[in-house]
């Protein structure tokens, strides 16, 4: 742990100005991940710029028929917001399956996107890790990798992105509104997080001097046929071994549109256009679901302890699609898988 300065940003412009003057500063909102990382000596920012007071706390309908979510909206408030519960229940369920009530109360919407991996080696500064210390090597590839990735990995890194919320946002094709010294821009969710490649130290395409201001949801919420299923080693307060967000638009039992994303398996929420295309025009049956699973898991590779994730993901995809098709989404209350 290293000492740091603390300052508060009054508005977005101020936040951008402050971070521009100090490249080793970090924004802090809920701090539910960054504080841990500072304690573990993984992060050592020179300054924490507190953005938790920025006026980015509203959840409002957009003229396009979607919803704009301020970056500082706490996860809990978002999950229980009537617009979200009513129109985007997939997002609500995904958020509520993550972390604990206390953490969700603190965690911000923008911060959720920026949380770092839970790979054991990333947190242990006594071991090599390319994400923490580029070029030092990946300890997980031949190590304790039960929780690590099976898709989109590289020789440099097999870490996963730990968010549940992001899996739903990926499926819903949200966009990320960011602002930097060069002005504002909008990043498609699929382009926000990166695969590790040779630069596992970079989780996202957000520039260091940019700030997330909002998440925008498009009009389509798939509120009739959706499910978020999270499989983990205990029934709450654990990161996903595999999670699945499924959203369907049905005409009778024929699939008109499908969205499918996986969590816990890759460096980013994992989608495949081929998998979703394979479902179009198909009946909601096991054959179609299995085909989609095959596409989505195409190229999946285990590293020893996590080999099971491939088969588990396949079954979880099929079950989640079935739950979505039947209109019986997974509930977080009794943890029984429907």
């Amino acid at each position: 742990m290293t000492p740091f300065q603390y300052s508060r940003a009054n508005d977005v412009a101020d936040a951008i100005k402050q971070i521009a003057t100090d490249p080793s500063a970090k924004f802090i909102a809920g701090g539910t991940n960054l504080i841990d990382l500072i304690k573990y000596d993984v992060e050592g920012p020179s300054r924490l710029i507190d953005i938790s007071h920025l006026p980015l706390r509203s959840v409002e309908p957009t003229s396009a028929g979607g919803v704009l979510i301020g970056a500082m909206v706490p996860n809990t408030d978002l999950a229980y917001h009537p617009l979200i519960e009513g129109r985007y229940p997939l997002l609500s369920r995904a958020i509520l399956s993550g972390a604990s009530q206390q953490l969700r109360n603190m965690a911000s919407t923008g911060g959720n996107l920026l949380q770092r991996t839970r790979c054991f080696y990333y947190y242990d500064t006594a071991t090599p890790c390319n994400k923490r210390e580029p070029g030092s090597g990946c300890s997980a590839i031949d190590g304790v990798n039960r929780i690590n990735a099976i898709l989109g990995t590289s020789e440099a890194c097999i870490a996963t992105h730990p968010s549940d919320m992001c899996v739903a946002l990926a499926a819903l094709e949200a966009t990320v509104h960011v602002t930097g010294p060069a002005g504002a821009r909008i990043i498609a969710f699929a382009d926000f997080h990166r695969l590790p490649g040779n630069t596992p130290q970079r989780d996202t395409n957000l520039e260091p001097d940019e700030i997330i201001t909002a998440i925008e949801l498009p009009p389509k919420g798939f509120s009739a046929n959706y499910s978020y299923l999270k499989i983990r080693d205990r029934l709450s307060y654990a990161f996903a071994l595999v999670s699945v967000a499924a959203a369907l638009e049905l005409d009778g039992d024929t699939i008109k549109e499908a969205r499918l994303a996986l969590g816990g398996v890759a460096h980013k929420p994992w989608r495949s256009t081929a998998a979703e295309a394979a479902l179009l025009g198909q009946r909601t049956d096991a054959t179609a679901f299995a085909k989609a699973a095959d596409w989505l898991l195409h190229g999946a590779k285990g590293y020893g302890h996590n080999n099971f994730k491939i088969g588990l993901a396949r079954r979880a995809i099929m079950r989640t699609l079935d739950q979505a098709a039947r209109g019986t989404p997974q509930s977080n209350s009794d943890k029984k898988i429907r």
Partner: peptide
Amino acid sequence: DHRFGRVMNANIAE
């Protein structure tokens, strides 16, 4: 991790 002889989940999250 027996290579390092270290406990890898030394916290109550993991």
